[in-house]
Amino acid sequence: MTSNRVERGAAVPLALFVLVVLGVLIGSTLWAAHVESRAGHQALQALKARLAAELAWPDVVDRFDSLGVFAMVPGDSLVAGLWAGAGGVTTGVVVHRLGPEFFLVDSEGRAGVSLSRSAQPTFRSQVVARLDSTVDSATGRATVSLRPLTAPFWSGLPRVD
């Protein structure tokens, strides 16, 4: 005796439903992880840009003599350094001679990669310094050095264009 059975079930729709639910769950978790990863990456880039800006200007101040900064006339600006660091972070330092005695050292660090161009982390650090001339009474030779302001003045304001 033979029988021709027609069986109907819900296995395929149920399996599809389970797959969709699992997909939504996994997708949501991955999305959350992705957003957190990008936020962390952005924070890291911002930190790199900031460190780049902060670390660049002391080096330039140390090299004022060799850079010829003392030969600048008031109103002059000098690009004292432009570096590309690891991770695409770039740093630029510009020295402005404000007057016979005052210099402004403007350091900018810019992150290489970011979520968007408008959110590209950029940090600036400025230091104003004042020249100090001392004359050796024995030799009569003048020594010019850079003395920080009282109090040494730092700011981190963006440039007004």
């Binding site: 007057g99 016979p100 005052f102 003045f153 700011s155």
Partner: peptide, 8 residues
């Protein structure tokens, strides 16, 4: 006040 003096 001398030339170039910084102003905050």
């Amino acid at each position: 006040v001398v030339p170039g003096t910084p102003v905050r």
